[in-house]
């Protein structure tokens, strides 16, 4: 996109990572066609850091997000705050992941992150609609949700801040803010975020980046997936590179060079195996 490089100077202090939040070991996914999409991925993320996952689209990063988000089954071990997650059983779903403190801003917000025909206020609880706080028995407290959505849209500078408009009536950037607001404001321990600024207008990109950094500074763990290497380099504290379903290597963000990352993304091992 035009002018991306200019915009990607994100103000942030060095990370102060805490205890490990997410520990992934030997994660494998075989798709319905029998192709192995993840071939034993291992990585971990600590509190208060952003792990950027760089890679050319289609090398397994989408599958990783979907497994962690509860949308796809896998084998291997994933621990969240020390407790193992169900990867293939009855609790391998989005509800259980949210309960475990994982929030997920999906790569495809229009097909997955939002119901395009739902109003913004309805989308503001999508995925969290089972929260007892917004319900009375089986009924949803629609007016309370509406009020909350209205305030949230103000805080996240969603334009126009009208919660009754359907999601499809907003621009890409404002749609993303609706998703981001929903996922961030519940204070998750881990945020999965895929292609945070794809199809997003310039003004919103900066805002979204600031939110990610603020979340990190609040001591949360973040897994950032993006095909924009500049975005990964600007936001991450550590950068892992995925190629053909495997982690090719991992580097600290301040030591990373675009050339080195680019080589790893192309499948060339640089000797810095994870």
């Amino acid at each position: 996109m035009v002018g991306r490089k200019v915009l990607l100077r994100v103000e942030k202090t060095p990370a102060t990572p805490g205890k490990p939040v997410l520990e992934v070991e030997n994660l494998r996914v075989i798709d319905p066609a029998g192709v192995e999409r993840l071939r034993g991925v291992s990585l971990n993320i600590r509190a208060g850091e952003v792990l950027g996952l760089a890679g050319v689209a289609g090398n397994g990063q989408s599958e990783l997000l979907e497994v962690l988000g509860g949308m796809m089954r896998a084998t291997g071990t994933v621990r969240m705050n020390g407790a193992p997650l169900d990867l293939s059983g009855p609790h391998a779903d989005g509800q259980s992941r949210r309960a475990a403190g994982i929030a997920h801003v999906p790569e495809d917000r229009q097909r997955k992150g939002l119901i395009m025909d739902y109003a913004a206020w309805e989308n503001s609880v999508f995925g969290y609609h089972r929260d007892p706080a917004i319900a009375t028995g089986p009924l949803m407290r629609n007016s309370a949700i509406l009020d909350h959505a209205s305030a949230q849209m103000q805080r996240f500078d969603v334009r126009p801040p009208n919660p009754r408009l359907p999601a499809k009536a907003f621009s890409g950037g404002n749609q993303q803010k609706v998703v981001l607001a929903r996922e961030i404001e519940r204070g998750p321990d881990l945020l999965l975020i895929g292609q945070p600024t794809r199809g997003v207008d310039i003004g919103a990109i900066e805002f979204i980046h600031q939110q990610i950094v603020a979340l990190r500074d609040a001591g949360k763990a973040i897994l950032l997936v993006s095909v924009e290497l500049d975005e990964i380099m600007a936001l991450s504290d550590r950068i892992a590179v995925i190629f053909d379903g495997r982690i090719m290597g991992e580097v600290a963000a301040q030591d990373a060079s675009a050339r080195e990352l680019g080589l790893m993304m192309a499948g060339v091992s640089t000797g810095k195996a994870a």
Binding site: K112, G113, I115
Partner: peptide, 14 residues
């Protein structure tokens, strides 16, 4: 209704 509008989104929402 969510499922009727989009099955992938429903899956995302658990």
């Amino acid at each position: 209704r969510a499922f009727g509008h989009s099955e992938p989104a429903a899956r995302y929402a658990g």
